[in-house]
Design a protein around this nucleic acid. Structure first.
Length: 224
DNA sequence: TCATTAAATTGTT
DNA sequence: AACAATTTAATGA
């Protein structure tokens, strides 16, 4: 299982830090174990940390007034999020829930601000991350209204596989069909059927406990 | 190293 | 939601 040290080492923004800077970041961060189904933070809470997923899977969602859960995106191991709320200094807008037992890294606001002031690489990372997210949400508005289940699963996988946001070690994404169901808002059975269609289309390969992405562009553009 | 077992995940209805 | 089949991980000889 990855550790905080390993996750930091794998993050693009930490590359240019001196060992002293790295040491400071590491010592000021907090690691939390969150059990499956647990909250990392809730909508409306004060934002005090920038959050990274050391190991596990997180979903960012919101509960509508009618009580319906709307999932915006999933964040796999190696991902960072929450910079938006930190920068705007506003209460958290979404619920952050883990789908499986996870190790969560929390960077205090003061550390975050210090990095912002002292590291160009850190700023560049945030710029790319914000831009990629913007692209994801534009794509969502553009297409998602009319998309069927197969395409929603495809989108979901494509966002989780974004090489800019989550520079995974390979094309294999560790996610069960049940977890994918939570993210896409579909039943596990439906996800199973969708994955088969996508496999037939040659876009991915179904593995035990995961998915191997063969054609990322194809997944992004899949429409029926 | 191999066989057995439990747990997780998948495939199907 | 339920069930069977399959894969993986853990255990101990």
């Amino acid at each position: 299982m990855p550790t905080l040290t390993e996750m930091l080492a794998a993050s693009m923004w930490s590359r240019s830090l001196t060992t002293e800077q790295m040491q400071r970041v590491k010592s000021e961060m907090i690691v939390r174990s969150v059990p499956a189904g647990g909250f990392v933070c809730r909508k409306g809470e004060e934002v005090e940390h920038w959050i990274g997923v050391i190991d596990g899977l997180v979903k960012i969602s919101s509960l509508s007034a009618a009580g319906k859960s709307m999932t915006f995106t999933g964040v796999p191991s190696g991902g960072w999020f929450g910079e938006g709320s930190l920068l705007k200094d506003e209460p958290r807008r979404y619920d952050i829930i883990v789908l499986r037992d996870s190790q969560i890294a929390c960077m205090p606001r003061t550390t975050f601000m210090w990095l912002l002031d002292s590291s160009i690489e850190f700023n560049r990372f945030l710029l790319v991350q914000l831009n990629e997210r913007l692209g994801q949400f534009i794509a969502m508005v553009e297409h998602d209204r009319l998309l069927g289940p197969d395409a929603r699963v495809a989108r979901c996988l494509a966002t989780m596989f974004n090489p800019h946001l989550y520079p995974g070690s390979g094309p294999l994404l560790q996610i069960s069909q049940e977890e994918l169901g939570y993210l896409a808002g579909l039943s596990r059975q439906r996800v199973n059927q969708s994955l088969k269609q996508l496999e037939i289309a040659g876009l991915l390969r179904i593995e035990y406990g995961g998915i191997t992405v063969l054609d990322l562009e194809g997944l992004k553009q899949f429409e029926h």
